[in-house]
Nucleic acid binder design. Sequence first.
DNA 1: CGATTTTGACCGGCGC
DNA 2: GCGCCGGTCAAAATCG
Length: 252
Amino acid sequence: MSPDYDKEKVEALEAELECLQKENEALGLMFETMSRKYIMLHQAYLRQKSNKRQRLEVPAAGGSKASQVFVKTDPRDQSLIVQDGFQWRKYGQKVTKDNPSPRAYFKCFMAPGCPVKKKVQRCVEDKSIIVATYEGQHNHDVDSTAAGKSLSASCSSAIFSGTRSIPFPPLDNPFRPTITLDLTLSGSDLQNHRNLPSLMHDYSTSNDDGNNKKKKIEDYVAFLTKDPNFTLALAAAVARSIKTEHPKPSPP
DNA sequence: CGATTTTGACCGGCGC
DNA sequence: GCGCCGGTCAAAATCG
């Protein structure tokens, strides 16, 4: 072990450390932005829920359920396409009063008679976020190849499911939707992602006001993990990825 | 030329 | 009862 070798090694490690710190800082900022957006959307959702149509909260016979999925997209992309593994046919578009962005109406036509509909509209607060509202239950299985493609080819990522109730019970239900719970944030390199707690620890200790930020992040994580809908969506996403890795052979 | 999307018209529910 | 608004229909337009 020569001193030169050690020095070189130390320099390399320092460079790597600096690189990681910058990366952590950027990811931390993105995480904070995302958490703000989530809180904003959650509050808007709660406001709407409490202000409008309270009588509709009485569940219909058979339980008509709706779930919302928030999808982060490229703001330049004006299309209202949410790749979720199902085939949808657009049957209408409307501009609603509370949102200048048009709302598109889709029906599932993967199977004849499938009653599922979805409404897709850009978030009024952040036009890079698409809100997809699903209604009904599919009477057929999801097209796993399309779902797989949608995960790899789409530049969008569903950041969370703001569900009042998820119409497709996760894991054991073959009719569940492809709710992609992607907390990695669009545009970031998958290879660069370490596990979140250590990432947050590095980030929080590398800043002067680290304690404050750390507390914010911990609060947010606690908030998310307490939300049963988040847990359900997370479980669905994990199940989805397992299914994609080990696809069951399709019948001839 | 068939499939799909667009878009204006129509319908029904809800609040005033 | 009337008007507003969201959701759906269906003819026209567009696409492959």
